[in-house]
Nucleic acid binder design. Sequence first.
DNA 1: CTGAAAGCGCTTACAG
DNA 2: CTGAAAGCGCTTACAG
Lengths: 342, 342
Amino acid sequence: MKPVTLKQIAETLNMSVSTVSKALKDYPDVSKKTKRLVKETVDLLNYKPNAFAVNLRTKESKTIGLIIPEVVHHFFSSVIKGIIARAEKKGYLVIILQSNESYELEKKQIDLLLSKRVDGILISLANGTGNFKHLNDLISQDLPLVMFDKIAKIVNCSKVIINDRKAAYTATQHLIDTGCKRIAHFRGPLLPQNSIDRFLGYKKALTDNGLPYDPSLVYICECGDNSFEEGKESARKLLNDHTDVDGIFINTDMVAIGAITEFNKLGIKIPEDISVVGFSNWFMSSVISPTLTTINQPGYEMGKEAFKLLYKEIKNRKQNSPIKLKTIELETKLIKRGSTKN
Amino acid sequence: MKPVTLKQIAETLNMSVSTVSKALKDYPDVSKKTKRLVKETVDLLNYKPNAFAVNLRTKESKTIGLIIPEVVHHFFSSVIKGIIARAEKKGYLVIILQSNESYELEKKQIDLLLSKRVDGILISLANGTGNFKHLNDLISQDLPLVMFDKIAKIVNCSKVIINDRKAAYTATQHLIDTGCKRIAHFRGPLLPQNSIDRFLGYKKALTDNGLPYDPSLVYICECGDNSFEEGKESARKLLNDHTDVDGIFINTDMVAIGAITEFNKLGIKIPEDISVVGFSNWFMSSVISPTLTTINQPGYEMGKEAFKLLYKEIKNRKQNSPIKLKTIELETKLIKRGSTKN
DNA sequence: CTGAAAGCGCTTACAG
DNA sequence: CTGAAAGCGCTTACAG
């Protein structure tokens, strides 16, 4: 059963293809009667415009690309949900690609999306990405691009972020306020901007409060991702290296939960012996024992805002309106729970 | 900067568009020299075929649609990962849509994908879906369709499933084998086939072991999804209704973790007072305390297999080969942990 | 108000 | 080995 075409509608009605097309698009210079007739026949024959032809003519696909480091991840899957919810409302579909934190893959995927002629791209950078030519190429080709969460400051496009530095400062300040004097930091992998910013916030909170900054208290993740296992391992290392640490600010809830699990196993009391603050407010952080004090990171909203920005850029480009790049900073919040003292 | 077209390549080389096109596709009747020349120029000008035109000619989009009840979900996001990994290898892109467990949305999304002319559709049914006309329509339009996890047995298409009934039987048997005599079941929402099958497996294990089946021990989720809150609530209800229950088989790990959290809070000892078995082997089940005995449900593999089946169908249809529908049943496994007696 | 025509950028059967 | 031509199914500027 071949799909019905405009031509067939035209033939059944003894009209020209142009008239049928215009009737369907409610052109004002088509008679009411014709429009009615066309619409009836379209319903009757269950006509659906051939998207391929429409794309070719309009040079639009009504599809955007999304590149994300990892799909199986509480925060990112919330972002995805926000993006596709918003996109669907505006009639856009979302092609999703996973970079696995690899720069090489990310580059290839940008190319793929480009050759598919998506109308725009949303991206959260891979941890491995330290070179931004592939992104600047997009911009010079005038393809709307919005970065979110893991961004590169030097790339000249719209962004949706949180203030990682400020949030990390707040988290660390909370540890200090609840009596911690010797505060460690699990900072995650080296490259991504948000790891850097969270580290800087941690450091600034220390020095602002007159506490010495000690690099040996900062644990870097060599494996490249923020895993449960990493949390366990860093926790063990920390106990081995230091006996006086009374607080830790951890880059990500998943890692924090790993650390807590390990501390529980080793009989370290939280928060009595060591207080812990995580980051992201993953659902699980309210479930483990003790519950985890953390920073709420609004994933769903981030997805929504990122799509909204992209949509505006696509629209402006179509109307040749000037494009003003924008960086939206979403609010974070400290969620106090059982892993820190009252 | 407009994208480069075949025509421009042809002009720079003083060739016809046809020759350039054929050279690019390595037609055997084009001279080596021409091919070389064309490929050089293509690289030089950074030519990328216009996907819209290619789609229109070949009537293929090299894109498939994926409809999934919920993105923010450990099991489903693993499936997504498996699908896009496999799809990328075969040169297919994946458009992802979320039905929010709603039949109406699911129907609309099928329509959307149809009008986008995707090459095939992968779907896991919404809990709200009790009517299958929208799916049968796809089949009668000859669009490749593969269902996974939450399927409808009566729809005549390829499927990737686990044997929910058998897995539930194993889970319940394990409770019996470890000494439980009065076993409850949190069965989740009413409609989906896998809830039904897990319930049937539970029931059969009871009767096969000479234990009475008591409907008052089966808790149905009214809210329609399997949530942490539901687990807490059902746990409370259960304690209120019954004092002699010594084991529960729970539909999903998320719900089981809710229940365990509630039991922990109320001082119920697991597994001494009540043993608990979950379903899906979510990462978190190895982290909570006590760790959760559960059934491993291979999400990533399911995604991979589902795409492989769809790919084969797409290929066969192109070659007009006969299409043989297939149902793949993936292995599940009981993972014994701390929430059941040794 | 309606329709003929051009064209989007490819692919491919056909001719030479 | 190369190229002219038709056509995929639309949209839209233009003519009448």
